[in-house]
Design a protein around this nucleic acid. Structure first.
Lengths: 354, 354
DNA sequence: CTGTTAGCGCATTCAT
DNA sequence: ATGAATGCGCTAACAG
């Protein structure tokens, strides 16, 4: 039995105590436009209080076919990035009286399917997907059925209503910043490419190289897994290269922090020996030593906007074009140009490039 | 309308297609012990597939009075600490076919009440509370009603079934470690004391001082807000003291990281000038430079255990005594004893103590 | 202004 | 082995 268990008053109990019909109770409950006598309304209200009556959302939902619940499908709530997005979703949902059911996928296709299944069974009024999966089969059709009530944060292959961040442009922004600071030999540490976000950031990096006439040096693109550990390992790889890069762009801040350990283990310093720049702009960026330049992604706002977009769909409004959110580069010490560095770079420039 | 909207087959549709009664369909659906002819079972199964029939959890719940949903009340899901706890809850719930409804309180009494209200309305089968609130009125009775189906992570004043970590003991462990390393002048940076966890950790620190015959120096206990910023500020306070501490215990790692900035701004080093030790043992601890000694709190496991305990309650088992989880001190570089430090300490010892 | 009635989708007696 | 009927708690026609 649920929380109500056997006790817990029903609308009928209220009606009896107030000596009226359940209809009347229902009317005062929902401030129906139907007029109801002030006298009886008082009695009903009194009975409600006396019985500590709480309408049963289940019964209401069964009838109205609206559960006032939306489902959010995320890779992993314990990942601070998604935790922030989810909070945005929850707050926006809460404002409209909705609750949120969350399913973690761990980026596993099976768990994704299962999550969707569960959410459908629970009759959520709409879906929000985030952490787009790259190259996943059999999901397309599933999503297609849900089209009318689904919003995606990022992209999922299908052209569903979405809220997006221009990750590709963000990478270009980062590289441009480095180039302006005088860096030319730029490496990139990607996250796992099963996420569309990571695919886009890498794509942006490659395009930026072209745009600024930089070469893609073999070994300068590493693929990590968005963790401290894999950032550390990727950095060790870069450090072992015959010619190390001058600057490194990391697909998220976590990997950057991991890399900092590898750098300091070698007795090297940022930004003296390397400039580094991250993605996400987690709070620690402004407290690390040195402070870290990073690309701010409006995580909370993305969740919030996605939810609001979903509500507009639920209200029957036709979906607009994807909603784009601005990204912003927050400049800090880690990409400052140091005297030593410029000298260094001059030296290195004379070395043969690949 | 929910996801089913107007389409979506009901049990009646299946029955018609399979040329049998809804009763029979229900029986094969739930592998009832009632025998049903293999022939008809096949037809039913076929119909189910053909119609892509999915039982409506709402209707089922209305009847069974079980929603297969539990409610989790947390201070803030976007806080990595609670995000981890919640993941433990979700995974344990998922294993039993349950989903989790989350409510954020931001430690506000109003939001707590509202959260409980919403969860009750949605007929969750049980509650998990975490982030115990210190000195909050009017919650006691509320919780009392829910007693039969409620588990608390930490403590909430009331004696509800709970899963706990010995925060007080943990502080003593930390101080003991520092004492063993030769530190005597120990400061403590607390989190906001609205959380029972923070109250216990502070209490533990004070008891540890007594236990090891250390004095509580005025100004050596700071109250922060579990954020980088407040850790930074607390550290600046400590640095401005006429006699600075030799070692500092922080009530969470975030504040410690914030403090590291204040330390390095003064050109000071850890552990040369200060030993520091944190709470939570976030992943970054082993990647920071220096690596950070911290107290590991089994967040995921706490969530998981709380959920399992809740299920045992739901099954009608009587609640056991509080379940205690071990904490563990993970020693790293930040509390290493340095030569310089010992000398320093000798010197300082001769100064008058307050 | 108020009450009666008919379902929402399903599991469960109780007959057959 | 099968099915008809009942009701979970509620809202929404439709009558008074």
């Amino acid at each position: 039995m649920g929380v109500l268990s056997k006790n817990s008053a029903t609308i009928l109990d209220v009606a009896r105590l107030a000596r009226c019909s359940i209809t009347t109770v229902s009317r005062v409950l929902n401030n129906s436009s139907h007029k109801v006598n002030e006298e009886t309304r008082k009695r009903v209200l009194e009975a409600i209080r006396a019985l500590d009556y709480r309408p049963n959302a289940l019964a209401k939902s069964l009838l109205s076919k609206r559960t006032m619940t939306i489902g959010a499908v995320v890779p992993d709530i314990s990942n601070p990035y998604y935790a922030e997005v989810v909070r945005g979703i929850q707050d926006a949902a809460d404002q409209e009286g909705y609750t949120v059911l969350i399913q973690n996928t761990d980026r596993l296709s099976d768990r994704l399917k299962r999550g969707i299944h569960i959410l459908r069974e629970k009759n959520v009024d709409g879906f929000i997907f985030t952490g787009g999966l790259h190259g996943m089969e059999g999901i397309g059709e599933l999503l297609c059925e849900l089209k009318e009530r689904t919003v995606v944060i990022g992209r999922l292959g299908e052209d569903l209503p979405s809220v997006q961040v221009d990750n590709e442009q963000a990478s270009i922004l980062a590289v441009e910043h480095l180039v302006q600071k005088g860096y030319r030999r730029i490496a990139y540490v990607s996250g796992a490419l099963c996420s569309t976000t990571m695919v886009d950031r890498l794509e942006g990096f490659r395009n930026a190289l072209k745009k600024f006439n930089l070469q893609e040096v073999p070994g300068y693109i590493q693929e990590g897994k968005q963790t401290l550990q894999s950032g550390y390992e990727a950095m060790r790889q870069l450090l072992s290269l015959p010619e190390t890069p001058e600057a490194i762009l990391f697909a998220n801040d976590q990997m950057l922090f991991g890399a900092m350990k590898a750098i300091s283990e070698e007795g090297l310093r940022v930004p003296k020996d390397f400039a580094v720049i991250g993605f996400d702009n987690v709070p620690l960026c402004s407290y690390f030593d040195p402070t870290i330049t990073s690309i701010e992604i409006p995580k909370y706002e993305l969740g919030q906007a996605a939810t609001r977009l979903l509500f507009s769909l639920i209200r029957g409004e036709t979906p607009h074009a994807p909603l784009w959110f601005p990204v912003q580069l927050i400049e800090r010490e880690s990409t400052a140009e140091s005297k030593l560095q410029s000298v260094d770079r001059q030296k290195r420039k004379r070395l043969p490039t690949y």
